[in-house]
Amino acid sequence: MRSIDAIGTAIETPTREASPEQAAGELLALAEEVLEHWVLAKGAAPTTETREGFRLLALHRQGAQGDPSFNACRETCREAAYHYNLVTMQPDSAATDQRLEMMRLIVNHLFLFVSGKMQVAGLGEFCCSSKPIRLAPGQEDRISKEA
Protein backbone atom coordinates (compact mmCIF):
# COMPACT_ATOMS: atom_id res chain seq x y z
CA MET A 1 0.00 0.00 0.00
CA ARG A 2 1.27 3.46 -0.90
CA SER A 3 2.00 6.03 1.77
CA ILE A 4 -0.63 8.71 2.29
CA ASP A 5 1.68 11.29 0.70
CA ALA A 6 2.27 9.06 -2.33
CA ILE A 7 -1.48 8.72 -2.73
CA GLY A 8 -1.82 12.50 -2.75
CA THR A 9 0.80 12.79 -5.46
CA ALA A 10 -0.79 10.03 -7.53
CA ILE A 11 -4.19 11.74 -7.40
CA GLU A 12 -2.66 14.90 -8.83
CA THR A 13 -0.81 13.05 -11.57
CA PRO A 14 -3.09 11.73 -14.32
CA THR A 15 -1.96 8.54 -16.08
CA ARG A 16 -1.63 9.75 -19.65
CA GLU A 17 -1.87 6.45 -21.52
CA ALA A 18 -4.81 5.06 -19.64
CA SER A 19 -8.23 4.55 -21.18
CA PRO A 20 -11.09 6.41 -19.44
CA GLU A 21 -12.15 3.18 -17.73
CA GLN A 22 -8.59 2.53 -16.51
CA ALA A 23 -8.20 6.10 -15.30
CA ALA A 24 -11.48 5.91 -13.39
CA GLY A 25 -10.43 2.55 -11.95
CA GLU A 26 -7.13 4.03 -10.79
CA LEU A 27 -8.89 6.95 -9.10
CA LEU A 28 -11.31 4.57 -7.40
CA ALA A 29 -8.39 2.45 -6.18
CA LEU A 30 -6.68 5.56 -4.81
CA ALA A 31 -9.86 6.49 -2.94
CA GLU A 32 -9.98 2.98 -1.47
CA GLU A 33 -6.35 3.27 -0.38
CA VAL A 34 -7.12 6.53 1.39
CA LEU A 35 -9.83 4.79 3.40
CA GLU A 36 -7.60 1.77 4.02
CA HIS A 37 -5.19 4.11 5.77
CA TRP A 38 -8.00 5.42 7.94
CA VAL A 39 -9.27 1.94 8.86
CA LEU A 40 -5.74 0.70 9.63
CA ALA A 41 -5.10 3.76 11.79
CA LYS A 42 -8.15 2.77 13.81
CA GLY A 43 -6.64 -0.68 14.38
CA ALA A 44 -8.94 -2.68 12.09
CA ALA A 45 -8.27 -4.76 8.98
CA PRO A 46 -9.69 -3.05 5.87
CA THR A 47 -12.70 -4.93 4.59
CA THR A 48 -12.66 -6.68 1.23
CA GLU A 49 -16.43 -6.67 1.05
CA THR A 50 -18.46 -4.41 -1.18
CA ARG A 51 -21.54 -2.32 -0.62
CA GLU A 52 -23.81 -1.39 -3.52
CA GLY A 53 -21.10 -2.88 -5.72
CA PHE A 54 -18.27 -0.75 -4.35
CA ARG A 55 -15.55 -1.65 -1.87
CA LEU A 56 -15.10 2.09 -1.35
CA LEU A 57 -18.57 2.35 0.18
CA ALA A 58 -17.96 -0.70 2.38
CA LEU A 59 -14.68 0.81 3.57
CA HIS A 60 -16.42 4.08 4.36
CA ARG A 61 -19.06 2.25 6.38
CA GLN A 62 -16.32 0.41 8.24
CA GLY A 63 -14.40 3.64 8.85
CA ALA A 64 -17.46 5.42 10.25
CA GLN A 65 -18.19 2.74 12.86
CA GLY A 66 -17.93 4.40 16.26
CA ASP A 67 -16.90 7.65 14.62
CA PRO A 68 -19.94 9.53 13.35
CA SER A 69 -17.87 12.50 12.23
CA PHE A 70 -16.47 10.30 9.48
CA ASN A 71 -19.86 10.54 7.79
CA ALA A 72 -18.75 14.00 6.69
CA CYS A 73 -17.11 12.22 3.74
CA ARG A 74 -19.96 9.76 3.05
CA GLU A 75 -21.36 11.75 0.13
CA THR A 76 -17.86 12.37 -1.21
CA CYS A 77 -17.41 8.58 -1.44
CA ARG A 78 -20.80 8.18 -3.07
CA GLU A 79 -19.99 10.91 -5.60
CA ALA A 80 -16.70 9.15 -6.42
CA ALA A 81 -18.65 5.93 -7.05
CA TYR A 82 -21.22 7.80 -9.14
CA HIS A 83 -18.55 9.42 -11.32
CA TYR A 84 -16.82 6.05 -11.72
CA ASN A 85 -20.11 4.71 -13.06
CA LEU A 86 -20.56 7.67 -15.38
CA VAL A 87 -17.10 7.22 -16.90
CA THR A 88 -17.13 3.42 -17.18
CA MET A 89 -20.69 3.12 -18.46
CA GLN A 90 -20.36 5.89 -21.03
CA PRO A 91 -16.63 5.98 -21.88
CA ASP A 92 -17.30 7.45 -25.33
CA SER A 93 -19.36 10.34 -24.01
CA ALA A 94 -18.20 13.83 -24.94
CA ALA A 95 -18.29 14.61 -21.23
CA THR A 96 -15.85 11.85 -20.24
CA ASP A 97 -12.79 14.06 -19.85
CA GLN A 98 -14.68 16.48 -17.66
CA ARG A 99 -16.21 13.65 -15.62
CA LEU A 100 -12.76 12.21 -15.01
CA GLU A 101 -11.42 15.58 -13.91
CA MET A 102 -14.39 16.02 -11.59
CA MET A 103 -13.79 12.54 -10.19
CA ARG A 104 -10.17 13.53 -9.59
CA LEU A 105 -11.30 16.58 -7.59
CA ILE A 106 -13.75 14.43 -5.60
CA VAL A 107 -11.08 11.84 -4.75
CA ASN A 108 -8.67 14.64 -3.91
CA HIS A 109 -11.24 16.05 -1.49
CA LEU A 110 -11.53 12.66 0.16
CA PHE A 111 -7.74 12.50 0.43
CA LEU A 112 -7.47 16.00 1.95
CA PHE A 113 -10.29 15.37 4.40
CA VAL A 114 -9.07 11.97 5.58
CA SER A 115 -5.38 12.81 5.70
CA GLY A 116 -6.14 15.97 7.68
CA LYS A 117 -8.47 14.07 9.96
CA MET A 118 -5.95 11.32 10.60
CA GLN A 119 -3.66 13.86 12.20
CA VAL A 120 -6.25 14.92 14.71
CA ALA A 121 -8.30 11.75 15.17
CA GLY A 122 -9.92 11.47 18.55
CA LEU A 123 -10.16 15.17 19.15
CA GLY A 124 -13.63 16.52 18.73
CA GLU A 125 -16.96 14.87 18.46
CA PHE A 126 -18.08 16.10 15.12
CA CYS A 127 -15.50 18.19 13.40
CA CYS A 128 -11.91 17.73 12.48
CA SER A 129 -10.65 20.68 14.47
CA SER A 130 -7.62 20.70 16.66
CA LYS A 131 -3.93 21.25 16.88
CA PRO A 132 -1.78 20.35 13.89
CA ILE A 133 0.12 17.50 15.50
CA ARG A 134 2.04 16.75 12.34
CA LEU A 135 3.92 20.01 12.67
CA ALA A 136 7.40 19.96 14.07
CA PRO A 137 8.07 22.01 17.21
CA GLY A 138 8.74 25.59 16.25
CA GLN A 139 6.46 25.55 13.26
CA GLU A 140 3.48 26.25 15.49
CA ASP A 141 4.76 29.78 16.04
CA ARG A 142 4.44 30.41 12.35
CA ILE A 143 0.84 29.20 12.37
CA SER A 144 -0.01 31.30 15.42
CA LYS A 145 1.45 34.41 13.87
CA GLU A 146 -0.38 33.74 10.64
CA ALA A 147 -3.64 33.16 12.48
Binding site: A72, C73, E75, T76, H109, L112, F113, G116, Q119, V120, G124, C127, C128, S129, S130, K131, P132, I143, A147
Partner: peptide, 11 residues
Amino acid sequence: ACCGGAHTMSD
Protein backbone atom coordinates in the same frame (compact mmCIF):
# COMPACT_ATOMS: atom_id res chain seq x y z
CA ALA B 1 -18.22 18.27 1.49
CA CYS B 2 -15.99 19.59 4.28
CA CYS B 3 -14.72 23.17 3.81
CA GLY B 4 -12.02 22.75 6.45
CA GLY B 5 -13.68 25.44 8.53
CA ALA B 6 -12.91 23.70 11.81
CA HIS B 7 -9.17 23.82 11.32
CA THR B 8 -8.88 27.03 9.40
CA MET B 9 -6.64 28.43 12.15
CA SER B 10 -4.82 25.31 13.31
CA ASP B 11 -4.06 23.86 9.89
